[in-house]
Structure formats: structure tokens, C-alpha cells
């Protein structure tokens, strides 16, 4: 996987697919096939749960997206730390952090929606003030704030430094929120999203969900961070190109 090279936007053959390479195309096809399998197994081949009936099928989306959202925010935190550390300082880390956070917010949104639908079926309510749910909601809002900070403007280096600090502060905040909510509602702390007993076919569906969503995550992040790199290039070269064009006119 080559995260560092961003294909030139002007190179003829690639101009049609400026952010894709042979690797990402293969990855995209694999993710698509995985999701096809997930639909087949999750919706048709796997049986109903004894207690949750057909509602269990939501978990095949909910669990993988929750796992990916946390993974994505972990990647954002680690790459932010890598950017702030002087020896590994490179804007590539910043763009990886940004891309991962964007995809993380997407998956976190899916997690919250699918989770509350599942909660309505299983618990009879869309939402409970349990530590895990509340922390997840806070994480969602916090990373939306992080993305807003990325858009504040300034040079690429300013953006990178500012948002890297924000990402680390967010990692500081999350455990504090989690523990305070856990203490706040001690009665609910055991009421977590437990799957109950899953049979072999159900576990397999969940497994396909995890794999295909992970492939999708990697595919999305690679593309997003390449688009971000192109954006930066446009910013860097935009002025030069505009000047050159103006000179040619005169």
C-alpha cells in the first residue's frame, strides 16, 4: 500500500482516475464483493435470532461500523502524534489523520443510527444514557469539531499543527467523558450492546461485515487522503499557475 505517492493530476492516462491505482481498484472490488457477501449472508442465509428475531441483522452493520469508527479515530490520534513528533513530521501524516477522521465520522454516524434502530427493537427505546452510548455520541460531536478545526484556514503547516493538537486533546477528553458518564449513571453500566449467543452462520456474517467494512475503510481513507494531497497541491500551485496563465495572455 503506497500512501505517500499521490498521482499527478496532469498525467494523461491517470487523469480519468486521479486518485486510484491498481492496488486501490483491487481493494475497492474486494470491498464491493465483501459487501455483496454481507448482504447475502446477513439478509438471506443467516437465521433469525431466538430473542431478537430479525433485528439481529442490524448488528452485522452496527458492530463493524462501531469497530471501524474507533479504529479510525485511533489512526487519527496516532498520525497526529506522528506529525507532532519532530523526527516524523510530514504533512502526509496530517492528511492521513484528516482522511481517517472524515471516514470515522461517517462510520460513527452509521453506528449511532443503526444502534438506535437496534435499541428500539431490543430495548424498546432508541436511546439510553449508558456510558458507552453517551461516549460514542460525544466522540461523534468531538470529531465533527475536529473536522471544523481542519477547515479554519492558514498554511498547511498551521492546519496540521492545530488539528494534531486538537486530535490529541480529543483523546484526552474521551476517557474523561466515558468515566464521568459511567459514574453518573452507575445503574446502566452493565446494559451494554451484548450480542447474546450467536450461532455459526451469524458469527460468519458478522465476520464478513468486519472484513468488508475494514476493506472499505482502507479504500476510502486512501482515496480521501490522496484527494486532500491534491487539494494541498492546488493551493500550493494555484497561484503560480494563475500568474503563468496571466503572463501568457499578455
Amino acid at each position: 500500500m503506497n500512501l505517500t505517492s499521490s498521482p499527478s493530476p496532469t498525467s494523461g492516462a491517470r487523469a480519468k482516475h486521479p486518485t486510484s491505482t491498481r492496488f486501490t481498484r483491487a481493494l475497492g472490488i474486494a470491498a464491493l464483493v465483501g459487501i455483496g457477501w454481507l448482504v447475502l449472508f446477513g439478509l438471506f442465509l443467516s437465521p433469525n435470532d431466538r430473542v431478537q428475531k430479525t433485528g439481529v441483522r442490524i448488528l452485522y452493520i452496527h458492530v463493524p461500523s462501531a469497530w471501524l469508527a474507533y479504529l479510525a479515530f485511533g489512526v487519527t490520534g496516532l498520525s497526529s502524534a506522528a506529525y507532532l513528533w519532530k523526527r516524523t513530521r510530514n504533512l502526509q501524516w496530517d492528511r492521513l489523520a484528516g482522511a481517517s477522521a472524515e471516514v470515522g465520522v461517517l462510520f460513527m454516524g452509521i453506528t449511532l443510527v443503526s444502534g438506535s434502530l437496534w435499541g428500539r427493537i431490543s430495548w424498546g427505546q432508541f436511546w439510553t444514557w449508558d456510558a458507552r452510548l453517551t461516549t460514542t455520541a460525544f466522540l461523534f460531536v468531538t470529531y465533527i469539531g475536529y473536522l471544523a478545526v481542519r477547515d479554519l484556514g492558514g498554511t498547511h503547516q498551521q492546519r496540521a499543527k492545530r488539528s494534531a493538537v486538537m486530535a490529541l486533546l480529543a483523546m484526552l477528553e474521551v476517557p474523561l467523558v466515558h468515566f464521568s458518564v459511567k459514574w453518573w449513571r452507575p445503574l446502566h453500566q452493565n446494559e451494554t450492546v451484548e450480542k447474546g449467543k450467536l450461532n455459526g452462520l451469524m458469527l460468519f456474517s458478522l465476520f464478513i461485515g468486519l472484513i468488508s467494512f475494514t476493506l472499505l475503510y482502507v479504500w476510502l481513507v486512501i482515496h480521501r487522503q490522496r484527494v486532500l494531497a491534491l487539494n494541498d497541491q492546488v493551493d500550493d500551485r494555484g497561484l503560480d499557475l494563475a500568474l503563468a496563465a496571466r503572463r501568457e495572455e499578455s
Binding site: 460525544f138 478545526v149 492545530r162 477528553e173 459514574w183
Partner: peptide, 29 residues
């Protein structure tokens, strides 16, 4: 962080309120 940024009036609550939630809970209790 928000000082001098475009749209800081709306950015500040978005950034700050989630962070101060533990204080709200702890201080209230």
C-alpha cells in the same frame, strides 16, 4: 484556538461544550 478564526462564534460552543461535559456532571453531582 477559535480566536481570529472565521465563524468563531459558532465554532467555540461546538468545540468546548463536549469537553466540559465531565465538569457539568461532576460539579452537578
Amino acid at each position: 484556538l477559535a480566536a481570529g478564526a472565521k465563524g468563531r462564534e459558532t465554532l467555540l460552543p461546538l468545540l468546548m461544550l463536549p469537553v466540559v461535559a465531565p465538569v457539568l456532571i461532576g460539579a452537578t453531582r
